[in-house]
């Protein structure tokens, strides 16, 4: 019956929309709690440092590999697009600017977001389903203060740090490819780097990284906290944390690019 289908379709949409609204509501409440417990959470500084190590040090090798190849691809791509229209002396400038404004922050956020977001969601999700989070609450230890705040803060602090590191590696990757396969000299590459280096480009990339860090930490914690059911629930939470943080990173990248490049850092 077509009416039946229509009714069912309407119910389904209403149900899903309701779920979605409820989820956004819970996320908003979590953000409120993070704000409320920010100061007491920071007082247990050891917890923040532990998380900073896990996020920063743990991601180093992954970031090195990804950035090296990103820089390399940026060089190949630039050389191909320049093809006699733009002189190759600008290759360093193009690599530098595309890396520090866009590629460095975004790719770092996607890679670190996958790794860190998944591990946070899996850890907190396991704690949820094995009642460890209830056990914290029963001991009058607020889980947002004890678990969420250190992770979100650590992600916010470490993402820009890792991004600067990734920028440097990517520019080095671009350099290696430029001098070995494109035939640009070291001197030309370095002059190109310096010629169009603006501090505001670096800043805008780092401001993005701060937001991306907040997104990754928050989504990992959020999906960890709402985990239900056993191992299957933990798997689902992990997937959701990664997918949602990647999507939100890309959406917020667009918004931030507009705000930062058109208004705040507009020339």
């Amino acid at each position: 019956m077509p009416e039946d289908l229509a009714v069912r379709g309407y119910r389904y949409v209403r149900h899903r929309a309701g779920d979605w609204v409820a989820e956004v509501g819970r996320l908003t409440m979590l953000l409120g709690d993070v704000g409320r417990f920010l100061a007491p959470g920071l007082r247990s500084f050891g917890l923040v440092v532990d998380q900073m190590k896990a996020i920063g040090v743990g991601s180093l090798w992954l970031v090195v590999v990804v950035s090296l190849f990103t820089g390399g691809v940026a060089a190949v791509q630039a050389a191909y697009q320049f093809s006699s229209v733009v002189p190759l002396k600008y290759i360093g400038s193009v690599i530098l600017r595309s890396v520090i404004i866009e590629l460095g922050p975004v790719l770092t956020a996607l890679v670190v977001g996958g790794r860190v977001g998944a591990s946070i969601a899996a850890e907190l999700g396991t704690m949820k389903v094995t009642e460890q989070i209830d056990a914290l609450r029963a001991m009058a230890i607020n889980p947002v203060r004890y678990l969420v705040v250190p992770r979100v803060i650590a992600a916010i602090v470490m993402l820009p740090v890792v991004t600067v590191f990734a920028d440097a590696i990517a520019i080095f990757g671009g350099y290696v490819v430029s001098i070995t396969t494109i035939g640009v000299s070291t001197h030309t590459y370095v002059v190109g780097l310096k010629q169009f280096f603006y501090l505001k480009d670096l800043y805008s990339g780092l401001v993005k990284a701060v937001f991306f860090g907040g997104i990754i930490g928050t989504m990992g914690c959020f999906y960890g906290f709402v985990t239900e059911g056993g191992a299957e629930g933990v798997g689902l939470a992990t997937t959701r944390a990664v997918v949602s943080s990647c999507v939100l990173v890309l959406i917020s990248d667009y918004v931030l690019a507009n705000v930062l490049l058109r208004f705040i850092f507009a020339s």
Partner: peptide, 14 residues
């Protein structure tokens, strides 16, 4: 809660 101690069914160890 500070006046309470609780042993969980599955122990819920950290």
């Amino acid at each position: 809660r500070k006046n309470f101690g609780m042993l969980f069914q599955g122990a819920a160890l950290f």
